[in-house]
């Protein structure tokens, strides 16, 4: 598998560390239902059959976290963008 690092170019997956679901957002710790919200955030995961957005760390390269869109059926990678951009935009909060 090769991941198109937006900073370094396409690199073999051995340079990356997998983390997991990039679609979840850390809840506010001060909300009244914080425990339930954090429980969901930490433990509850979709397991999609198809395209999935995942966090990968370019450990063997630029040390940037990436949001990689990968098809779980065949490892086809549609793209990768810097996690900073995705999370700064605060999308799908």
């Amino acid at each position: 598998m090769r991941i198109p690092c937006p900073h370094c170019g396409p690199r073999t997956h051995e340079e990356f560390t997998y983390y997991g679901d990039a679609t979840v957002r850390r809840p506010s710790s001060s909300s009244p239902d914080a425990v339930a919200a954090f429980y969901d955030y930490v433990y509850t995961r979709d397991n999609p059959f198809g395209l999935h957005r995942e966090l990968w760390f370019h450990q063997g390269g630029c040390h940037e976290w990436l949001v990689v869109e990968r098809d779980t059926r065949n490892h086809a990678i549609k793209g990768a963008v810097p996690a900073r951009d995705v999370f700064k935009a605060g999308e799908s909060k």
Binding site: L55, F57, Q59, H63, E64, W65, A83, R84, V86, F87
Partner: peptide, 18 residues
């Protein structure tokens, strides 16, 4: 050492990029 370093980057880049 490696996990903490990655974790710090994750916290900075994904949780609190501000």
């Amino acid at each position: 050492a490696v996990q903490v370093y990655q974790h710090m980057h994750l916290c900075h880049q994904a949780l609190w990029p501000e």
